[in-house]
Every structure is written in structure tokens, then in C-alpha cells.
Amino acid sequence: MNTETDDILAIAAAWRAAGEQVALATVTETWGSSPRPAGSQLAVTKSGRMAGSVSGGCIEGAVSDVAMKTIETGTPQLLDFGITNERAWEVGLACGGKLKVFVEKLS
């Protein structure tokens, strides 16, 4: 799906063009009752701005922590969230779904 009303890529690109340091998180795979389909995006800036969503709220906090690190290091990350993953319990993926999220810096 990509018929998103909010154009997160455009927002991220505009932030970067305005001099912000920006990371982009994208859902790449889902299983079970994950609320957002593959392609859903969350943009995060070093200054703390956020736009979009990768889960409907469950894991945005954890993803934005990783996004901050990715902004620092420039190294992309592929994150797993799900009921088989202890970190998922920690961040509370209450829907019981599983998903993978790719986090990259807009260099």
C-alpha cells in the first residue's frame, strides 16, 4: 500500500532540505495483526520532530531511539519486533503482530 495521505518521505525531505538531520524508518515486513502495512513510514529528526507511524503507537518510542543512533552513526538498522522477541514485550506490541522496520539516515 502506498496510498498514504501523509507523505512522510516528502516531509522528511523537506526537513533535510531545511538543514535538519533526519532518519527514516520504514515497515518492510509484517505478520499477523500488525496495524500498519509494509511501506508505512516514520520520520525523526535529531531535534526531536516526528511524523508518521510504523505501528500505530506501540513501537514508535523504540524506533525513534534507534533512529537517533542511526543519525549519529549513519549506519542503517533492520529491526525485528514481535512476540518472539523480548524487546517487543519490553516495548509492548499489544496487537500480537510481528514486523520488521528498516531505519536509515537521509545523508
Binding site: 502506498n2 496510498t3 520504514t26 518492510t28 515486513e29 509494509a38 520488521k100 528498516f102
Partner: peptide, 17 residues
């Protein structure tokens, strides 16, 4: 109109539509 991950050989690709 369906973004997703595909495996070609041993390589995984995320294809974002």
C-alpha cells in the same frame, strides 16, 4: 500496489512502491 520484501537468490530486497 503492494510494497514488501522479496528474496532473490540469497539477497533480501525491500521493494517500496
Amino acid at each position: 500496489d503492494d510494497s514488501g520484501t522479496v528474496t532473490l537468490g540469497s539477497q533480501n530486497w525491500f521493494l517500496h512502491v
